[in-house]
Amino acid sequence: MKVNIGKKILLANEEYALKNKQLLAEKKKLCLNMISSPGSGKTSILYRTICDLKDKIKIGVIEGDIQTDIDAERIRATKAPAIQVNTDGACHLSAAQVNKALENLPINELDLVFIENVGNLVCPSDFELGENAKVVVLSVAEGDDKPVKYPSIFAKSEVLLINKIDFLSAGAQVNFDIERVKIDARKLNKDIKIFPISATTGEGMTDWYDWLIESINNSQGN
């Protein structure tokens, strides 16, 4: 006897994601889920963003890593609140983990919550955390074929940050055609916003900051 079920398999995660979304909406906070492979510069981007915008907006961070609190310590050096979540081997953050971390952040004092997901271009794209948008980071050293090889995250993200562009202007031997990345990403996601940046030199960061501030204003209903 066959019985129709028609239920989402990751429903338990989605229920928590919905709780997080409701909490963030109620408090009018913007929440961004940063996803990339390890070493693309997520923490460096956050560090620079927090320092450069410290007089304009208050940022809190949820740091996801398999082990250690190295990243949360780096963020705390900026005086921004950071909660470290260790996944103990799991390859992505779950909405339940984010729910608990949100309870430990001084959310009423913040304008923006960044979730820095576990470094992984695959699994985190399948797990909604309740964020307003996903931000995918790709650094030039990783190669320009990544949107084609890992389509899911590029299709689901609102913003693509192409980091370490100072490598290109410094003439480093990296095979990276920035136009190819833009074309391939837009085939999967025609509205994706693309900001080529360097978290080291600060090049291109202003456009990213403008987008952040505009998005915060939108979430606060200004």
Partner: peptide, 21 residues
Amino acid sequence: GKDFELLPNEPLTLEEIEFQT
């Protein structure tokens, strides 16, 4: 044509269970 709209992705779904009669 290269200009197209992506239609929604199907979520991971448990469609059907077969039980022993």
